[in-house]
Amino acid sequence: MTPARERGLTALACAAGAGLALLAAGRVWATVRAAGAITPFTESVTGRDLGGTASALGWAGLAGLAALFATRGRVRQAVGALIAAFGAGIVYGTVVSVQRSHVVDVAGDKRALLKLGASPQMDVNLWWMVSVTGGVLLAAAGLVVLVRGARWPGMSARYERETAPAAASAPAAPADDAAGLWKSLDRGEDPTDHDRPAEPRR
């Protein structure tokens, strides 16, 4: 596999991981039912309601993806380390946010009647697992960048190869052009005479 292709596949994994985290963040992760409240009700909470960690780090992962193409060498490796940290943060933040005590507290903040209910029931769906999957993908892509990113070409490498020969073949201007011009003017000569066609001799 060529370095450019490897870079492209890693960028695709990075984009997929961040995208999954952002997609899951807006979906309902848990539902709390308060059957013993004065007025029984059901409250649903999304990933953003539970803290928004996955959403924030998902956007950070997309920013890291842009930096992946704009950097090279050790700077790109540092970007890879950050992307891996973003992915790990998504996984950790997601797992913590679906703990029962946290979900019940968040639902209670949204619906005060929940605090009057006896033994609220909580159901967690699989959207939080989608967020974890996105975090794992993002972390894996960041580790690949950290290990192999220094070998990948930069975004402007093709343009540098095209312009370098042209710059090398361009003739250098004589350093004494300005000095020679002033000397010819001092002698009373017209420095533009060489641009005129020579007149035929009679």
Rank of each mutant, 00 (worst) to 15 (best):
M1E: 08
T2L: 06
T2W: 00
A4W: 00
R5C: 07
R7L: 11
G8W: 00
T10I: 08
C14G: 10
A16D: 02
A16G: 03
G17C: 09
G19R: 09
A21F: 02
L22A: 09
L23I: 04
A25Q: 10
A25H: 05
G26K: 08
R27A: 08
R27H: 04
V32R: 01
G36S: 04
G36A: 09
F41P: 01
F41N: 06
V45L: 10
G47K: 05
R48Y: 00
L50I: 09
L50D: 08
G52Q: 10
A54L: 09
A54I: 08
G58Y: 03
G58R: 04
W59T: 13
A60T: 06
A63M: 11
L68P: 01
F69C: 03
G73N: 03
G73W: 02
G73C: 04
R76M: 05
R76F: 03
A78E: 00
A81G: 08
A81M: 06
A81E: 01
I83R: 03
A84W: 02
G87E: 12
A88T: 02
G89M: 09
I90C: 06
I90W: 04
G93T: 05
G93Q: 02
T94H: 00
V95C: 04
V95D: 02
V96R: 14
S97M: 09
S97P: 11
S101L: 10
V104N: 07
D105W: 05
D105P: 02
A107R: 07
A107Y: 10
A107D: 11
G108L: 03
D109Q: 13
D109S: 06
A112P: 05
A112W: 10
L116M: 13
G117A: 15
G117T: 00
G117K: 06
A118S: 10
A118L: 12
A118D: 10
S119K: 11
M122S: 02
M122H: 01
N125Y: 00
N125T: 01
N125K: 03
W128R: 14
W128Q: 15
M129Q: 14
S131W: 08
S131H: 12
V132A: 12
T133M: 15
T133E: 15
G135M: 11
G135W: 07
V136W: 03
L137F: 14
L138I: 05
A139N: 10
A140F: 08
A141G: 11
A141D: 07
L143G: 10
V144A: 11
V145A: 14
L146A: 15
R148G: 06
R148W: 07
R148D: 12
G149L: 13
A150K: 14
R151I: 02
R151T: 05
P153L: 14
S156W: 13
A157V: 14
R158G: 13
E160A: 15
T163I: 14
A167H: 12
A168S: 07
S169V: 15
P171Q: 12
A173L: 13
P174D: 12
A178Y: 06
A178R: 13
G180T: 09
S184D: 13
S184I: 08
S184T: 11
L185K: 13
D186S: 12
R187Q: 08
D190E: 11
P191K: 08
T192P: 00
D193N: 10
D195N: 01
P197V: 13
P197F: 15
A198V: 12
R202E: 04
